[in-house]
Simulated scan of single mutants.
Amino acid sequence: MEMTVGDLVKRLSACDPASPLRLAVNPFFPMEHRLEQVVEATDRAGRLVVYLAEGRNADTQLGHLPPKVAVALAWQAPVQAPPRRPRRSARPAGGR
Rank of each mutant, 00 (worst) to 15 (best):
K10S: 15
Q61L: 12
R34K: 13
V39R: 15
D16H: 10
P20W: 08
V69A: 07
H33C: 12
G55P: 03
A58Q: 13
R56C: 02
V50I: 14
A81N: 06
Q80T: 11
L12Q: 13
D59I: 03
E36Q: 10
P83M: 03
P30C: 09
E40S: 10
V79Y: 05
F28Q: 15
Q76D: 08
E36P: 01
L62E: 04
V49M: 14
R47C: 08
V38W: 08
A74I: 02
Q37Y: 06
H64V: 08
L62A: 00
Q61C: 12
Q80G: 08
V69E: 02
D7Y: 06
P67K: 08
L73C: 07
P30K: 05
S19Q: 13
R44G: 09
L73K: 10
W75S: 05
N26H: 09
R44A: 13
L62F: 00
K68H: 12
E40Q: 14
P30N: 02
A18P: 00
V71D: 00
K68D: 14
L35T: 08
P67L: 11
V39K: 11
S19W: 13
P83S: 05
A18D: 12
R47P: 01
G63M: 02
S19E: 13
K10R: 15
E54Q: 14
D16T: 03
Y51M: 05
H33Q: 13
E32Y: 03
Q80P: 01
A70W: 00
D16A: 12
A58W: 04
E40D: 10
A81Q: 07
V39L: 11
R56L: 09
V49E: 14
T60Q: 06
Q37K: 12
E40I: 04
Q76G: 01
Q80C: 02
K10P: 00
